[in-house]
Amino acid sequence: MELKESILELLRRAATDLSPDVEAAIRKARDKEDEGTPARNVFDTIIENVEMARKQSTPMCQDTGSLVFYIDFPVGDTEKKYRDAIEWAAKEATAKQYLRPNAVDPVTSKNSGNNVGVNAPYIHFHQWDKDEVRIRLLLKGGGSENVGTQYKLPHQPINAGRDLKGVRKVIIDAVTKAQGLGCAPGTLGVGIGGGRDTSYTLSKEQFFRKMGQRSERKELAELEVQLLEDLNKLEIGPMGFGGKTTVMDVFIAAQDRHPATFYVAISYNCWAFRRKSMTIKEGEVYYD
């Protein structure tokens, strides 16, 4: 398969076929809700929709998101090769209705109509020593992006200080403010430390973890487990209708900060948590 066609298939899979680990988390959440409650009905509708989308090969959600790629490529390859293939695939996927046209010029408000524009799709490039290519894709919905937020500690209104206790508080605050608006139940990516830009970048990269995959740092892994319990006590529930599952998982990572700054960036992903990856090895394409 040609590179551009393999990327088109990656886009199709991401938009139409929810990953098994995410679907399992949704089914588990459904089983916790009582028969006849709005929460249970929402989960039933979500599951029916996921099955239909997979069968019909149509987007599970009409907001097919902003396209964010993460590419690890071997020495000798050029970025241009991948950029050209991605732009072709984005246009083709839009024409085939796997994607909605979601690239809008903020100056003229004109939609490009094909998901290609300035920094759209956005591509993170990384050269590595391996002799293979890894292409990871996140389709990031706009509604959930709008409830993402960044805190600067200390954060006075809730007495959140410059430590993990403070981090816990601002995450609870962010999810409470988000209510159902990010299409709950959500999955959180949290980046602690770094600058304004890199804390968000780190938070988004966490979305490539599998559901239930804990941080390798003991303190952060404990905080993830604690927060999962705390946040589901809020009873915001699916779509904000009330219920036992408000978030499906919390992924936290930390990076060194400047002595004067302490940022916590929180990225929220909707239940339609769409991320897929593929590897190209000796000319063969493998999808996760």
Partner: peptide, 9 residues
């Protein structure tokens, strides 16, 4: 309120 994300359904 409709179910957010239930695009295909």
């Amino acid at each position: 309120h409709a179910v957010g994300g239930a695009g295909t359904l």
